[in-house]
Amino acid sequence: MAVPRSATDWMVPVFGLLGAIGLVVCIWLIFTWVPNDAVLFFNQRIFYFHVGHAFNLFIAVGVCGVSSLLFLWRRTPRWDDLALAAAEVAVAYGAVVLVTGSVWAKAAWDHWWVWENRLMMSLLLWLVLVAYVLVRRYAGASADRLAAGLAVFGTVGLPFIYTMVNKGDQHPQAGTNGNVATLTGPMQIVFWLSVATFFCWFLALIASRVASTRGERELRELREQGLDAGLLT
């Protein structure tokens, strides 16, 4: 009898391959096809990866928050596995967003950082995610519930960060004319392609981490069973 394969088994290679192809195509298009922005010139090309990661950061935080909420409600370990995997991916994506954003700000406005609303909220969200990972690692037996509460708290901030760009703050806009919808043809195509590419990476990484976290948990449970049965000392 064949052992049933988990969804994570095929998700990692499939989405990893799609992400790798998308990454190559994106980089090629960004540097050969997309025109220079009329105001920001060449440095606007950072936008495709910076905002692409930001969109996926929102998705990762949303997945982490909803999974944590479901874990707190149902106490099912698989939701906890998904929340932890999403939080770790969100930390990586958040780091890319903050670093590339800072470099872009230096290139365009000669400032590494400006203490404005959206940047502050984004930094706080990232710190909450880092706190989530640290709590999971060091908080002991009740780490999963503590971290889940923290994730729900962090997710509440998402709508504020997303809407702040239209609330007159100083954060740079997506294109010359403002938001993503007003980007010119090639810019918009490459932007959405980069979002899709990083979403593929997000799915591959999530699947990989869920499988790994599930393996760690199952191993822990087996060891406990072995200890209870007197097989292990």
């Binding site: 440095n43 950072i46 990989s208 393996g215």
Partner: peptide
């Protein structure tokens, strides 16, 4: 600007490599 674009993309790759190393470490731990 080209210099900054290169720095930004390099930073992204560094974070990606760091995250993959973290995954590898977790796998080895497992």
């Amino acid at each position: 600007n080209e210099r900054h674009v290169i720095i930004a993309y390099a930073a992204m790759w560094l974070v990606a490599v760091g995250f993959l190393l973290f995954l590898r470490q977790r796998q080895l731990g497992l």
